[in-house]
Design a protein around this nucleic acid. Sequence first.
RNA 1: GUCCCGUUCGUCUAGCCAGGUCUAGGACACCGGGUUUUCAUCCCGGCAACAGGGGUUCGAAUCCCCUACGGGAUGCCA
Length: 454
Amino acid sequence: MSEVRVRFAPSPTGFFHIGSARTALFNWLYARHTGGRFILRIEDTDKERNTEEALRVLIDGMRWLGLDWDEGPEVGGDYGPYFQSERQKIYDEYLQRLVGAGRTYEKDGAIWFQLEGERYTEYDDYKKAEIEKVRAAPVVIDDAVRGRVERAEERDFVLVRADGSPVFHFVNVVDDIAMGITHVIRGEDHLSNTSKHVELFRALEVEPPIFAHIPLILKESGPGKMSKRDAGALIDNYEERGFLPAAVRNYIALLGWNPKDDREKLDIDEIIDLFDFPGINKGNARFDERKLSALNAEYLRELNLESFAFLVRPRLHLAGLVAEDVDEDYLQAVLRLCQPKARSLDDLAELCDYFFSDTYTMDAKQGEKLEKKGDPKALLGEILPLLEALDSFDAGSLQSMLEAHAVVKEQKIFAYFPALRYAVSGRAGGPDLLPLLAVLGSDRVLARIQAFIA
RNA sequence: GUCCCGUUCGUCUAGCCAGGUCUAGGACACCGGGUUUUCAUCCCGGCAACAGGGGUUCGAAUCCCCUACGGGAUGCCA
């Protein structure tokens, strides 16, 4: 059998949304699974959009998700050009074949495709008009996901607009033929269009590819499929918010596909290995950002400290917390404490700002709570001189010092913890206190306690 | 309106093709408990579904039909 050739054929609209990304991913996975080729073809026939910038969004999004293409923009290939705007000659050629076969006619300045079959007119309730229909033989496809699907096309359709530009259905089929596409993996919204496409394949005397129509991603709440405007729909948004591409990729792979066992967190090689049409669901899937976040948090926790620091540094810099030349040892010491607490990269700056700045906010509510339980200033007043006298400011020394003091006061060591934490961080939760103090260092800790007591 | 596709916990899904092992499994979310100085993590437990009706069968989540509901298509958009 010849090599598998699949394609992702987006139109650069300036958005790269999660549904497109999932279609791209499924095509990519199938190519990688079968050892075939993944082709990126740009359907940029709409001249009005800023294709340069829009293309960037698409390409950046693909790269971010790690979906590399074997043929297409920036990499070339033997079946180019890979922009529809540059393939006019090819469309003309194929159009001539249809004209030669007597399957076209002109009407209102446009070129139409003529179906074969008995013609009749009928009132169409949707069009609210009397229109010509054709009793064409039903097209039967053996869809790799949905099985046998039969549908008859009943109206002629436009191939080339009055302004001379070819329409989607036509160029799509021509390009798939010219590029030797063997499998068309696309959203279910194209299932009804497939009868048009198969009619064209037949008229051009080409065996149609194998179709695999994948379920749609429905919006998180409300009716309908996900669109650009829905929350969480855009891929670049996840990049901005500090989601890990591996997590996003893993999550969208699970939207409409699953490995048939109970595993959900899978690395990409496993997904490639397991991915195939029988694992694809028929029913549409509803997007759930909480599940994505949970998966992302899981990936985040598994990162080694160096990688984690690498990802976090620019975000802290952006938040104005660290300089470009931040001390790497200090940064890593902080992150060693904060990484286990992080649920996303996005909230990390908030989580650990007090390590880098003295202008962190004091949580007033927690302050009140603390007051009710005891006198934090008095407690801190007791241990401040001891802290000042400490010659080694590490977790072990802090612990022995506090324990010794607690014994004298007939207290538990933990009696001092909440006040200490609040004074140095302004909040009630966070990393383990003693290591936190050690990393923060005696200068900062003492200054903050003094300020708190004053 | 017509045509096409679908329907298992709130959500993603396993099971369906090859009917019995399903008192329907896992995950997210939620709720409780444990661990922890705290928060997060982690561990334990709980909640919760075969859309409805008819068949076929000794037996149906699984096969067939109908209905309902959901989604899509019906553009000189892609």
